[in-house]
Amino acid sequence: MELLIFAAILIVFVAFILIQGILIVRQSETMVIERWGRYHRTLSPGINLIIPFMDQARPIMMLSYRGSQPFISNEKRIDLREAVLDFPQQPVVTADNVSIGVNGVLYFQIIDPKRAVYETENLVLSVQTLAQTTLRSVLGKMELDEMLSNREKINAELQGIMDEAGDKWGVKVNRVEVKDIDIPSEIQSSMNQQMSAERDRRAAIARAEGEKRSEILKAEGDRDAAIARAQGEQQAAILAAEGQKQAAILHAEGEARAIENITSSLGANAKPQDAVRFLISMNYIETLPNIAKNGERVFLPIESAALVGSVGGIKELLNPSVVAAGTQQN
């Protein structure tokens, strides 16, 4: 009977030892195991065997928030997934002495559980404190306008600093973002006025550019029109001159043929000057009626009487056919 009791106790003890020695680690989790208080190994996901009482899981201190209240807990299972840390708002004085409130969000992931356990007492608190001090340091070197317009630059600089510092703790900082910037009301009012003035300035510049472009186009149109008019007038003058030239040539050719005809009709003793005087006299006689129309009295120069008198002498030398030919040519 005593032997059965002892056997039962031994079986229960062995079962208890086996149960205590089997650890199931879920995916994306791990555990740091110490043997007799010293680091032994890091468990991988799945079934793991340990020696009870000799091997113990080393807990990690984690800071979390329940609402707005911080809560510190000791966790034996280390979560390897990306975690989000939304640290509260803190005051920052910019390079141009503007007091603002800034809060941000940080995304980090534990990549070395051993260093995360042994290199810092409270991993999340250390990361949060480093993020806050780094944020104040980076933003304190910038002016407010630069801070508001260069958030991507700020995020990249914060991530670089945090990733380098977190490497010692076995933490990978994936990204850091400035979430909210609380600006004092008087500064916000001044910024609104500045933005309004800037919009008015841009609108004035746009109007001026439009008017300038309109004037340029108008001037170019006037210039092209003036060039076109000048070219048209030049072409018209050229054509008119060409017409006058052709008319003068034809008139001169007609006069030359008339002189030749009259000279040939007078015979071998005729002179070309007599034919020219005859044609001038005939033109003068034809013009007299038009001169008389311009007034009641007509004054003729002395030379005209002699010219008319010479016409009779020339006519006697010419036969009627020659006179008719000279008249038709004129």
Rank of each mutant, 00 (worst) to 15 (best):
V14T: 12
I17K: 07
I19S: 14
I22D: 11
V25Q: 08
R26K: 11
S28F: 01
E29H: 06
T30L: 03
T30E: 07
V32K: 04
E34K: 05
D55F: 03
Q56I: 08
Q56P: 00
R58L: 07
M62K: 09
S64D: 11
P70M: 08
K76N: 11
I78G: 03
Q90F: 02
Q90R: 05
P91G: 12
I100V: 13
I100R: 03
V102G: 08
V102F: 04
N103F: 06
Q109L: 04
Y118P: 05
L130V: 02
A131I: 01
L139N: 01
K141N: 10
S149M: 11
N150W: 00
E152D: 15
E164V: 04
K168T: 09
K172Y: 07
R175W: 09
I187K: 13
E198R: 12
E209A: 14
E211Y: 09
E215G: 00
I216W: 02
I216E: 15
G221I: 00
G221M: 09
A226E: 04
A226F: 02
A230S: 10
Q234E: 12
Q235A: 15
A236W: 01
A237R: 13
I238K: 12
Q244E: 15
Q244K: 13
Q246S: 14
A248C: 00
L250S: 15
H251G: 10
G254H: 08
G254N: 15
A256S: 14
A258F: 03
G267M: 07
L288Q: 10
A292F: 08
E303Y: 06
S304R: 08
G312V: 09
N319H: 13
S321N: 15
A325T: 09
G326Y: 04
T327G: 05
